[in-house]
Design a binder for these strands. Structure first.
Length: 493
RNA sequence: GGCAUUGUGGCCGAGUGGCUAGGCAGAGCUCUGCAAAAGCUUGUACAGCGGUUCGAAUCCGCUCGAUGCCUCCA
């Protein structure tokens, strides 16, 4: 008996705009695809929030007993910087600027991405495919769509014919846009355009001679269009129709809309049952974006080296902060909000730490079974982690009362409570009970600094019994004091 | 300009047609040598204006504001 058989999960489906009861295509199995990062610069905190939301979702599915194939791609082919005639590949541009091979850039930022995600305690996806590893598959899709007459070749590039597609399919159903409105509101294009219509999008782009990233194709040397890789990789690993496709809200249009169009044109069936969009992390009320410079890098938050922050925050505190907001809500990052989260996180962790030594009694003043189900109810309601956390604090209150002898808990309930805390806090939310090593070593320096000061005061008062006691006992603990001309320092042995 | 989302107490952030989360901060009390921690008590918030309703912060309309997308973007 798996948990998913008793817990009814509802998911907000962007396609219908409603919460729907989740039913996978194959019972007990879930196929989930999430659009990953373009690896041309360091992953920023906003990127992390989206991936963290899906990490939490992945964790909950696994906890419920589902077998999940979670595919999250790495976009390493690069895409057009702008629509101008000298359109240059993002990755190629960065490579030129840094005098690196494009694949060197890809490698550097892929490593950075993985490194940061590890610090945040992410579970690795089942498959992490790259766009450049699936050029052949993408070319095959372009061919198939051309054969159906839903794309056209112009000067070595292939474009998807949105108008033609709209005759038989609903282009715009995900983002709530109407093609006629889009045509009516088309911006003036300054550059000459090969496309029949501004709504059309590239399936394959011709590579100019100076373009470094290029592959041979039936239409000449070029590179795949931005939207195509996800269709190629999701179909290859999850099938023509699969359960869940996720990504950031900003990808809803045009990226995901185009993915739907391509896949429907290619396979005559809708590719995804549940579309999920994680909302943006803002900084000072504005979207974090690499392009505008309004962003914080994860390492800046771990070190506190950012003008917006008063101090360093551990990855787990940041994770807790993010989990306190629902994944579909915009979340604004501020130092004040992080401080509040840090205090709350610490209270939660202190309570969990005291759980082991909690005295047990004959009965429980606290309905543990009902409390556990409330936690599941929160998660089952479209992964409502803020409600789950509120419920966790309900338990914190009881744990503290039991600790003070004002309430009792039975041994059996204590075991259930302990296991549920483990499940909710560590397995599902993905938090870790660790103060950052940085802040611990800071605390240690402060503590030893205080002792050094006291010892100096004692020495000044010729109270050598005290001063020697401080020195010798610290030495026993492996902390060696060193008196020098400029004061006392210490080393750890 | 178009499409979408959104507007909750000092701050962050849930939620529901009537029983009004949670965290942080604040106030009072208990405990304590003093603190801290912990516990208890406390805050009648839902942008504005209309409408529907016995009743709306929750539904509808309008106004104002914010954000995202419409060009690469998590």
């Amino acid at each position: 008996m798996q948990l998913y058989q008793t817990q009814e999960l509802k998911i907000y489906n962007s396609l219908s705009g409603k919460k729907e009861v989740f039913k996978p295509l194959n019972e007990g199995h879930i196929g989930m695809y999430v659009c990953g990062p373009t690896v041309y610069s360091n992953v920023h905190l906003g990127n992390c929030r989206t991936f963290m939301s899906f990490d939490m979702i992945f964790r909950y599915f696994k906890h419920l007993g589902y077998k999940v194939r979670y595919v999250r791609n790495i976009t390493d082919a690069g895409h057009l910087e702008d629509d101008a005639e000298d359109g240059e590949d993002k990755i190629a541009k960065k490579a030129r600027l840094e005098q690196l091979e494009p694949m060197e850039v890809v490698q550097r930022y892929t490593l950075d991405f993985h490194n940061i995600l590890n610090k945040f305690n992410f579970l690795p996806p089942s498959i992490e495919p790259t766009a450049t590893g699936h050029i052949v598959e993408q070319i095959e899709i372009v061919k198939a769509i051309l054969d159906k007459g839903l794309a056209y070749v112009v000067n070595g590039s292939v474009y998807f014919d949105v108008a033609k597609f709209s005759e038989t399919n609903d282009y715009g159903k995900l983002s709530g846009r109407k093609l006629e409105d889009m045509i009516a509101n088309t911006r003036e294009l300054t550059a000459q355009d090969e496309k029949k219509s501004p709504q059309d999008f590239a399936l394959w782009k011709k590579a100019e001679p100076q373009h470094i990233m290029r592959w041979p194709s039936p239409w000449g040397d070029g590179f795949p269009g931005w939207h195509l890789e996800c269709t190629a990789m999701s179909t290859k690993y999850l099938g023509e129709t699969f359960d869940i496709h996720g990504g950031g809200m900003d990808l809803k249009f045009p990226h995901h809309e185009c993915e739907i169009a391509q896949a429907e044109a290619w396979n005559n069936q809708t590719p995804v049952n549940y579309w999920m969009h994680a909302n943006m992390l803002t900084l000072n009320g504005r979207k974090m974006a690499k392009s505008t410079g309004n962003n914080i890098l994860p390492n800046e938050i771990f070190s506190g080296e950012n003008p917006f922050l008063s101090k360093a925050y551990s990855p787990s505190v940041v994770r807790f902060f993010m989990m306190q907001a629902h994944y579909t809500s915009i979340l604004d990052l501020s130092d004040e909000a992080l401080l509040a989260s840090e205090r709350g996180y610490q209270r939660l962790m202190d309570s969990i730490a005291s759980l082991e030594q909690l005295p047990t009694g004959d009965s429980s003043d606290f309905n543990v079974a009902a409390w556990v189900q409330k936690g599941y109810d929160a998660m089952n309601d479209d992964f409502n982690t803020p409600i789950l956390i509120a419920n966790l604090f309900e338990a914190v209150k009881h744990i503290n009362l039991i600790k003070e002898g004002k309430e009792t808990i039975s041994a059996a309930d204590k075991k259930i409570l302990s296991q549920a805390m483990q499940n909710f806090v560590f397995d599902i939310l993905g938090l870790e009970n660790q103060n950052s090593t940085q802040s611990n070593s800071d605390k240690l320096s402060n503590v030893v600094g205080l002792l050094i000061e006291m010892r100096n005061e004692a020495r000044a008062n010729k109270d050598f019994a005290t001063s020697d006691k401080i020195r010798d006992q610290l030495a026993e603990m492996g902390i060696q004091l060193k008196d020098g001309k400029d004061g006392t320092t210490f080393t750890l042995s």
